[in-house]
Write a protein that binds this DNA or RNA. Structure first.
Lengths: 271, 271
DNA sequence: TTGCTCCTCACGTCACGTGAGGTGGC
DNA sequence: TTGCTCCTCACGTCACGTGAGGTGGC
């Protein structure tokens, strides 16, 4: 007579609900159904089929696909095609999840920098590498860089290689008429309208991570300049502000979560 | 007033149905809803939020997760936890799909062998490697090997390293009282009840791929033996039947799709 | 009578898509 | 009037899970 559904469920490691569902859609029928009670009974063949179904399910086949694969009259060619199609799908999923892993990794690293900036507002020295950049240089005030960046983003598109930053060519803070360049590091030279590309020289620099709204950047500049004076270093121009996180970026949250790296090129004696 | 839903749909690259759905569940609200007509209007902020939502969706976040991530009052720690949890999920998915890729790859290779066996029933010579095997040796008839294999599968479990095969110690076909050993190649020695482990010697062998039911194996044996005689080789015992696909295996289909490799050890002059 | 196993039926999940039927202004 | 854009409402998808309410034999 076979196993009633509860016992079969334990043997086959499939829930009762699932077994009833598989019966309903005809993918795994009981070997016998009592016409009076409606009780389902399963035998060894059912177990074999159940195992095949579960194995294919683990391999990400849909019930519809499993039904077709397990049909008796399948031709070799059809089965082969099914498998190769599924293999391709799986390879694509792997690629997709690798890309997701990379992008989430970037966000996580950003969050970690945010934490660091929270804890220790430390001044560090860095060696900057030469960068290929695309930039728009203009005379104006800080508030204008936003528009310049949206221009830059449009023009550079998929050649963008890093976070946006601006270069300040004045040796002082200027409310108006400051000499500013909005920049993007790019993978290849880009030239269009006001956008110019060139190699931005690297070298030694003093770095401070600033967390919070742009209005409070002054405090972090003070930290950097105090360090430079204490070490008797010489300032060089232009200085940079790298916008690690700001408005218009994913997961930006409030200005409290803005993150900016101040980079001031220096020269002088090494520690 | 903002863009009506159709225009916004084009700008944001999100379907109208999806926008209405996002409004309904409050994840992306229009900036204004006309109280008379019920028309939805969207502005720049909506666009920014829509972009964030789509980016997070690409990263496999659920709408519920996105809602929480984009909430204004999120703490850094919560966001960080969210991201690391998701990163772990993604890594697990990658591992899972790699495993699926491997398993489907095995099935595909089997299908390819099936095709080959179809096309050219060729006899080839092989060099077999030494194998660590677990086996049950018995006197009886061919039909009994099935039970022996289910015993072997239970005992060897996860140490199984390859396809099941049987060894024939008689130099002839015997209907009854044949000397047979049901074998599994294993990763480490297994010993329980009638199961014994040992190193099975490899060496030179003549191989034929047999496609179809076991009753027709005779024809393939003839091919192999004809080859051996033509080349003036000497037979050695035991011979093997490797069950590449048979009953009780995934995607077995009908006996027409059974695949068995006949291996007869030989010695004699090389070609 | 209680407890157990089984049954059916309806509804929920997730992120929308499909389609019916209707509105309002050009 | 026709065509267009918008609206709501109901139902479908996929692979079940949840729960209500009921049955039959020990």
């Amino acid at each position: 007579l076979g196993y009633p559904i509860g016992e079969f469920s334990q043997i086959a490691r499939v829930s009762i609900k699932t077994l009833r569902f598989y019966h309903e859609c005809g993918i795994l029928n009981p070997s016998f159904v009592d016409p009076d009670s409606g009780y389902r009974y399963y035998n060894e063949q059912c177990l074999e089929r159940a195992r095949a179904i579960m194995t294919l399910k683990e391999m990400d086949f849909s019930l519809q696909e499993i039904r077709e694969l397990l049909a008796q009259n399948q031709k070799d060619e059809d089965i082969y095609r099914f498998l190769t199609v599924k293999a391709r799908e799986v390879r694509e999923k792997i690629l997709r999840y690798r890309e997701i892993e990379r992008r989430i990794g970037l966000l996580i690293r950003l969050e970690e920098e945010l934490k660091m900036a929270e804890r220790n507002k430390a001044v560090v020295e860095k060696d900057l590498e030469d960068l290929l950049v695309a930039g728009i240089r203009f005379q104006g005030n800080y508030a204008e860089v936003g528009q310049k960046f949206s221009q830059l983003f449009k023009v550079c598109g998929r050649y963008i290689a890093g976070r946006p930053f601006s270069l300040y060519y004045d040796g002082e803070f200027k409310e108006e008429n400051a000499d500013i360049e909005a920049c993007l590091s790019v993978r290849r030279p880009v030239k269009a309208g006001p956008v110019r590309s060139r190699l931005l020289e690297g070298g030694r620099a003093v770095a401070v991570l600033h967390r919070g709204p742009y209005e409070s950047l002054g405090g972090s500049y003070k930290l950097a300049l105090d360090y430079i004076h204490a070490k008797k270093l010489n300032l060089r121009l232009p200085s940079r502000e790298v916008y690690l996180r700001g408005p218009g970026m994913l997961l930006r949250g409030s200005p409290k979560r803005y993150l900016t790296e101040i980079l001031i090129p220096v020269e002088g004696e090494r520690a």
